[in-house]
Each structure stands twice: as C-alpha cells, then as structure tokens.
Design a protein around this nucleic acid. Sequence first.
DNA 1: TTCCAGGAGAGAG
DNA 2: CTCTCTCATGGA
Length: 314
Amino acid sequence: MQIQNVTDFSLKYTLESGQSFRWNKIDDAYCGVVEGRILKISQQGTTLHVESSTNEDETTFLPYFRHYLDLERDVPKLLGEVDNDAYIHRTIQTLWGMHILNQELWETIASFILSQNNNVSRIRRIIRRLSERYGKKLSIAAYEDYSFPSPHALATATEADLLECGTGYRASYLQDTARAVVNGELALTSLKQLSYPEAKQELIRRKGIGEKVADCICLFSLGHLAALPIDVWIKRIFETLYLRRRATHREIREFAYNYFGDGVGYAQQYLFHYVHECPDWADTEHLSLINLKQKPNPAVESSKPVGTRTHRQS
DNA sequence: TTCCAGGAGAGAG
DNA sequence: CTCTCTCATGGA
C-alpha cells in the first residue's frame, strides 16, 4: 500500500540512527520485523510504499504504522523549539526528517539490555541470532526473517543457549527481566500508562537496566520525549560543545533539559546520529577531548557555555 | 596486544 | 554522593 504526502520525513535517517536494530537495507527498500510481521518500506519523495508479510486491514494497520514512524507528530515544530544554536542547527539541517520511532515495548526492553557496553553491529547480530533460535520464521517474497522472541521463550531458555547467541554477561539480565514479565512482576501494559519519571523508576529496578537503558526504553518505545539517554557520545558532546568542562550525568541532564526543553529526546537523537554519520565533529577542532580527558579539570577556564537561554523554567 | 562499543552492578571512600 | 573495577564478545 501507499502513503502519500509524507513531508519532512526521512526513512533512511529514521531507520539507520541506532534506535532500532532490526532493519536491513535491500536495494532501495528497508526490510525489518515489526511486531510479528515483516515490513518492506521504501520512500520516494513524499510517498511511502509499504508491503507486509501478513494481510493487513488498512483501517487498523495505517494508524498503527503511522504511529510507529511518529508521522502524526509535528516534528518540524518540535525541532524549531530546540533549534537554539549553530551545533544543533547543523544536525537538524543535515539529518532533516529523522523521526524517533514508537517501538514495541518488550523488544525495546530486551534490545537495550543487550546494548550495554556493546556496539551496534554486534547488538544487531545478537538479536538476529536470538530471533532465529526463539522466534517464528517469517517471509515476504524471497526475504526471510524471524519475529522477536517472546518473554516466555527467553524466560525458559537455558543460559548456555543465550550465551551461544553472543549475549555474554548480559544473558542473566535478559533472562531475569524476561521472567519478571512472564510472572507479572514487570507489567508491560501498566508500564505504558505511567508518566516518564514513574516508568523510568519502574524499569530501573530490574537488574541490568540502569538510567541510560531506561531512558532509551522511555524514548524509543514509550514516547517520552523528555527522556535523555546519556551514552559516552552524548556525554562528550555536552561536555565539549556546551558545558566546556567535565560534568556529571546529573549536571548534563539538568543543563540539557533546561536548554532544550521537553523535546530534549529528539535533540539528543540528532546530536547522537550526527556524530556517527558525519565524522567532522570527531575532528580535532570540535570534539577534541584533549582538554577534557585529563581528569580534574574545572580549571580549564570557564569559557562560557554556548547556550545560556533558559527554556521554560518550571 | 590493547582499546572500544548507545553501561550497569558491587564495593570503597 | 562519587570513583573504580569488572563483566563477555568481537572488530579495529
């Protein structure tokens, strides 16, 4: 089926920005598994072409699909509200149309448990192996893939099996959380009803889910755009470009929310992906960490932060 | 060989 | 509260 008049949207940046680990580029289309079916999506200008491995009822599928890609949101307006300086402006211009997905909750929880101290290509491989072993086989034309394993499947797997998939020391974290979902201790349905702070706190109780992973889940699945996952790159960006000093996570969080406001999650995603997509910031001039790598260094001169605008004091 | 990757837990101070 | 060490894996 087709979806027309999709403006200010980039399928490429949305699916390649490290928030989902399940998309493969096949020629000019993207194939991936979304909640038990394979979708094949391509974009030509403002038109999206979508094929599904199952017979979808358009009246229910289209709203679901648009929500998955966050097409209902006025993203340009949101980006306008965080477009405060030359750095963020450049990422917004370069990655114009990148959206934050609304992904299935259990897959997002499991995927970002596996993401800790890990890199994207290896995360993708682990998830692929888990799905091959514990998921259901799906196909669309000649393309084959597997659904994401259910909580029950991972809860009853042997730890040796999980290790064979490459999960490493994260196997027990994954299994503990899978079991918590199965026995109702972690109720996914009610998690969706909670506010951002409540949902984050509930997630963080689980072994293997810390602040960063909880924020990824809140942002990439639960739609909490105030969530700010702080990984090593986001930390570097805020320390070098904005605060110009070493800073704790708490300081970065406070500054970032104050500076970007409720859309800080979107701002974060543009900054994050820009660093990976455009290596110019990793160059000596901007993201050089020479000054910051040496530890106790608030004394590097308090060159004034790029931004001092306060956004909506609450 | 060492370092790093969308970190978190445990322990010490 | 902040710092430090360790954890399994594979690519650079």
